[in-house]
Amino acid sequence: MERNLTHIALFAALIAVLGLVPRVDLAAGVPITAQSLGIMLCGTVLGAKRGALAVLLFLLLVALGLPLLSGGRGGLGVFVGPSAGFLVGFPIAAFVAGWIMERTTLPPFWAAASGGVIGGIGVLYVFGISGMAIVLDKTLSEAALLGLGFLPGDVIKAALAGLVTQAIARARPGALLARA
């Protein structure tokens, strides 16, 4: 019981800390922050259920008014803004990434990277793009065009999620709860 609770809480804190990491600008000036890497890691390291709960806890703190989203954003406003769909998709993305990690027998890097791509990009974009379509009153394909700018950064992050998960699997196999 205690271990579940502390893992969920510490990974919610990890998502916040990764959002504080200064953003690295990709070539075209597209900023990437490590926050969505944190979302992916919640799933690939903690597993589907705990990972999704960690993300929910993180979002709860954002809603309560803590500036934990990358760039110091937070509060209730972000849940009605154009990126709200991404926030709704966060826990589901973590769940799917975790589910892939748990249910496949792929080696850790490939399982986590594909979890990152399918959950952290595929599923997340469905929610994010739908959200932008609703708030900005655009069609889905128009909104998708806006979301594409983030794709290169997110592909890199899925690969990083694979590398980090693999490193944990090697350094501390017992700590990789998704595969425990």
Binding site: L5, H7, L10, V21, L37, V164, A171
Partner: peptide, 20 residues
Amino acid sequence: LFGPVALAALDDAETVAEAL
């Protein structure tokens, strides 16, 4: 840095569980 920071979070989770 991401790997070591994630490991630190995992280790802290274990010690905090113990403290709890």
